[in-house]
Design a protein around this nucleic acid. Structure first.
Lengths: 347, 347
DNA sequence: GTGAAAGCGCTAACAC
DNA sequence: GTGTTAGCGCTTTCAC
């Protein structure tokens, strides 16, 4: 079946192509009867616009790019994408994910996409662009919207949570529960050069523990390793447990980021005989799907909502509007579940 | 900054546009030196192809559509999408999700997209098309690839698991553990008109219990409700527990589909005093992220792998190749964890 | 309210 | 190995 073009519809309806174009896009200055006749013919002929032709002629692509670190099927990425999709698909945009595995894939993106108006906006999720990359985008006057990016610099708009403040909340909770020695555990192995919320969470932890008066020896930090050494992932968690166990002063309150790290860590702690929360309290970060399942106390964030907010701002920018508040903070809330309790009495 | 076109590059390099086109696309019959010169100029001018113009001229869109039911951020959908993305993005395709919430959104998709070669292939995930929809696609000679679709009919290729056989495995496991009364619990509220694997799993359960010799009174079926009545989701689970509890013969082995239904159900069972697995064994379906977290025995499937397989076939079809086996079964495996055990001794 | 015509930026014959 | 040219299917002035 030869694909039907706007010319076929025009001929069938006995009008010109420009009239068909106007009629089908709902523009005014078209006689209602003419429009109806055109609609009928379009329907009959199964006509639909070629997006390529439309965007070539109009300069609008009706496509947006979403740059995601590492994969699309992680809890955070999939939910952010969902939020963006929800608001933009309704407005007729195609929402296209581009997964960045490393710097080379980022560069590939920049050398292919933005140039000739291949998208109308780009979303950057959870990582930062360097100045060269930013300037490529701004040169093309594309709206660039950040989502949980480490900084606001170079973005036309950003929607993000306050990682620093959220983690400080967790510290204060443990403090008020009487825990006198605290630990921070990051994702054990994180080979990605992109994820960076961890830095701010760690800083929030350190600042808040200082503010609460914890001495250095009452703080145990277990940051992520950049490279996967020979140990298995399981060994990594035993290693963390060992570090916790062998600290000069044993921590009784642990902040773990993200939840997906807390789950196996708690398993390991229980395996070696620590009771959670009797012996040690654990607080996660994200409130992802597993958090509720294992009854994990955690810091809740809603990435779908963050994605929606980012999309809302992108939409305004694409319409040429000014944003009165382009940098918005999305809320986080502590969710008290079963992995936190008062500090064990010391004796 | 005015966007640079292929003509700008041609002029800068002192050649014609067609030479630039050939050179930059890596076609042969271009002098290596010329090619290098063109590359340099393209780089210098930040040139990149306009996808719209390319696809308009070539007839290939380098885009594929992925039709997903309900949302993109569910475990299954996000993982399937990831798999498709992994293989197709490397080949230069944009992978565009289209979420189908209901019949109207399906119809909207069909009236907008396929017509004028807006994509080069479409993937249909977890639901079926009706004959009219199928004929629209086949009329346009687009490859249509199904993923866990209820039937093979009308698809150029399908990658799917055998829900029926997988569920039968679960039944036989419970049978061999000595369970004499079994129950099947589906997702309590499922307002979507799309998800349909449930039908086959239920049938697998029924067929296998018959084959194992279970009488009707030793089978308890709790199918999903189509509409959300006044009860909260929590009440729904209490309701299921109540049905299980009040069955003429109390089931000691329960097949639950999917995992996300098993998690709250187990919580509820434990809340009312049933020990899992001492009093009752539970088997889930999917092996999603929460399954390992709560130590759930379940039927493992790998939707990323299924997505990859579907994409591989789509790629072949787009290249005009014949598939020697267009309908492929992806494996499922039982994962024995902590929610199953021998039937409690009756007394 | 409608039509004619000039592109949008590229690819694909075909000629050289 | 390279250039010329005719579209691809639309949108958008600008006439009428």
């Amino acid at each position: 079946m030869a694909r039907t073009t706007i010319a076929d519809v025009a001929q069938a309806a006995g009008v010109s192509v420009s009239t068909v174009s106007r009629a089908l896009r709902g523009l005014d200055k078209v006689n209602p009867e003419t429009r109806e006749r055109i609609r009928e013919q379009a329907e009959r002929l199964h006509f639909s616009f070629s997006k390529s032709a439309s965007s070539l002629a109009s300069g609008k692509t009706m496509r947006v790019a979403v740059l995601l670190p590492n994969e699309i099927n992680s809890w955070f990425n999939a939910n952010v994408f969902e939020g963006i999709y929800e608001v933009l698909s309704g407005k007729g945009y195609d929402v296209i994910p581009y997964v960045m595995l490393d710097e080379p894939s980022l560069e590939r993106f920049f050398s292919n996409l933005p140039g000739n108006r291949n998208v109308d906006a780009v979303f950057v999720c959870s990582f930062d662009l360097d100045d060269a990359q930013r300037s490529v985008l701004t040169d093309f006057t594309l709206p660039v919207v950040g989502i949980n990016t480490p900084s606001d610099h170079g973005y036309d708009a950003v929607a993000r949570i306050d990682d620093h403040a959220a983690m400080a909340d967790a510290v204060r909770l443990l403090h008020s529960l009487g825990h006198e020695c605290l630990a921070y555990v990051a994702q054990p192995v994180n080979p990605s050069p992109f994820t960076c919320s961890d830095v701010m969470r760690m800083k929030g932890f350190l600042d808040a523990t200082k503010a609460c008066g914890y001495d250095d020896e009452r703080i145990v930090m277990i940051p992520s390793l950049r490279s996967i050494d020979t140990r298995s992932i399981q060994d990594a968690y035993s290693g963390i447990a060992a570090q916790l166990l062998s600290a000069p002063i044993r921590p009784t309150g642990i902040c773990v980021s993200p939840d997906s790290t807390a789950v196996p860590l708690i398993k390991e702690l229980r395996r070696i005989g620590w009771q959670v929360p009797q012996d040690v309290s654990v607080i996660g970060f994200d409130d992802d799907t597993t958090a509720a399942a294992i009854d994990l106390t955690t810091i809740h964030q809603n990435p779908v909502q963050t994605g929606r907010e980012a999309a809302r701002m992108a939409l305004a920018l694409m319409n040429g509007e000014e944003l009165d508040e382009p940098y918005v903070d999305m809320p986080t809330t502590m969710v008290m579940r079963g992995t936190t309790g008062p500090a064990p009495s010391m004796n």
